[in-house]
Write a protein that binds this DNA or RNA. Sequence first.
DNA 1: ATCAACCGTGTAATCGATTCCACGCCCCGA
DNA 2: TCGGGGCGTGGAATCGATTACACGGTTGAT
Lengths: 338, 338
Amino acid sequence: MASIKDVAAQAGVSVATVSRVLNSHPSVSPDARGRVLAAVEVLGYRPNAVARSLRTDQTRTLGLVISDVLNPYFTALARSVEEEARGRGYSVIIGNADERPEQQDHHVRTLLDRRIDGLLLSPADGDSPLLTDVARSGTPMVFVDRWVPGLDVPVVRADGHRAVQDLVAHLHALGHRRLAIIAGPAATTTGNERVEAFRDAMRAHGLALPDAYIGQGDFQADSGRRVTEQFLALPEPPEIVFAADNLMALGALDAVRARGLRVPEDIGIAAFDDIPWFVHTAPPITAVAQPTGDLGRAAVRALIDIVEGRAPQSVALPARLVVRSSCGEDTATPRSTA
Amino acid sequence: MASIKDVAAQAGVSVATVSRVLNSHPSVSPDARGRVLAAVEVLGYRPNAVARSLRTDQTRTLGLVISDVLNPYFTALARSVEEEARGRGYSVIIGNADERPEQQDHHVRTLLDRRIDGLLLSPADGDSPLLTDVARSGTPMVFVDRWVPGLDVPVVRADGHRAVQDLVAHLHALGHRRLAIIAGPAATTTGNERVEAFRDAMRAHGLALPDAYIGQGDFQADSGRRVTEQFLALPEPPEIVFAADNLMALGALDAVRARGLRVPEDIGIAAFDDIPWFVHTAPPITAVAQPTGDLGRAAVRALIDIVEGRAPQSVALPARLVVRSSCGEDTATPRSTA
DNA sequence: ATCAACCGTGTAATCGATTCCACGCCCCGA
DNA sequence: TCGGGGCGTGGAATCGATTACACGGTTGAT
């Protein structure tokens, strides 16, 4: 592969001049520029990003560590992150933690070894001293979706309070009173936050949320299945199961089916995270939709702000309720007042 | 961030010795080794992968360019690729082409600029002279799932012939005769191959496959919707629509629903690619399942073979039919012969 | 006419690693 | 006693870029 020296030789100039042409430095004569450009063309020269990074101490690359690639929410996030970054001249390297702290740490370390300019992270459950070190070391860093409390790192996330309140209001209006929730891992902030929002909304509607109606999940389908089975085995099972993410909702759906029960007639299901597939399940699932694309874009902007020395901003974007039929139809209560 | 010089100073040895310790070169005294290791510990030193790559001319990184991150088939593939690569000491950088040749080329170029050791690619529709150049230039490269005919590049893919034959047999047994297919883009090999397999199977069962029953899709949900609408508008619409990938099947499902028709009573749907969600759709979808994990792993092995100078092998792994209820129940024909 | 400013260019240092080569030392055999 | 052969070590070249600095040649102001 041709190097800058080959180009310089071919064009009859020094490597410095070649470099200047390539970086559109002003003081190069049109003649030299032309010869260099021609040489580049002839040789099919492409600058070696590795060498360039070593010298300039910047890679124009962002790292993104997500909790689970198989979760459509995170792939949607990854896509918008990559898009926004590309638009701003950065590349993105994605690491998949699979909800395992060791694997998360592996990726964080590898990314740091590659001297990425900044790190976008949705921390997995379980603590990671590494993360604390990295945050303190001054590496540009932004949390997306989830975060680690106590670290001075900007967070870009969805605020589900309002949407969860809308959800509970919707369920209440449909006549449901016994609502249960499948929570995320206690150590993830989103896990807690969603439970809190739900608890608040329940209280506001004068509904009780007994401990038996709070199941511990881990954001994976299996845990949704397991918790739902426990709910169904209760002397007084809930009328609605609200899963804190889309995968657990899927597990819940499975468990209900396996019992030979129907949704929503026998039991209703709702989910945090809206994904394209929820339109096609039987029945279509009522969900709290996060503005995933906006989150990804905002996160990249915040991160690049840090990288380029500007003041970053934490962002919380509102989520919104998308009503479908998995908790019962509400066509019986028309809203029009004509 | 500490460099090898800092470690050398701290340990009171030269950088050469530090390097030798780090690369477990034999001729280093236990004493020196101990001091270096201690210094590494104290400084929290991590070797700069950029510098190392520049010197050694290898990055221990593989590039993976997939056609669409939002397609669960490709995320599953990406996951297994990353896993296998990690197990062998390589990292993976993923690029998402979004089925757009220019974006694919952008990623290929960026990956090459970063001097990845090898490239795993599932080429998008449309031709790309760049790909031909890269293949000819001797860059280690392997195609997964799709490929570009005429290039001397190993291909790792699923062979769907048998499974598609099983599918047609299954449909035939259920009494269906008018079967239609939503093809992928003509220029993608998988697109053609799946149509050919289908055509062969139809012929084997003495069934006609009129042109009107072959729709042109592009592997995206929208095209599935559009083509299905055309099928439904036919004087004699098909009894079954077979989509050449999972996204188009979803679009087909949408189109059928939008018409107020039921699946499978009014029209059946089947898909190439099996994904976890197909269990949860209404109704669960009959599909041809690719051994995605095995494909990813085999692809990485083939690529690393090239990178490390061994002879690579093209691989075709058999796909298999997974019968669900989207084409009609076949519980009426028990297989047991007890 | 003189000098400063400026322009285009090249030389060389530099980034952080790896690795070839040489050097000093010790041990062993002749 | 002397020489050859490891062994452990350090010096320095090298990878491919960027960039500070120096240099020669114009140009314009005084």
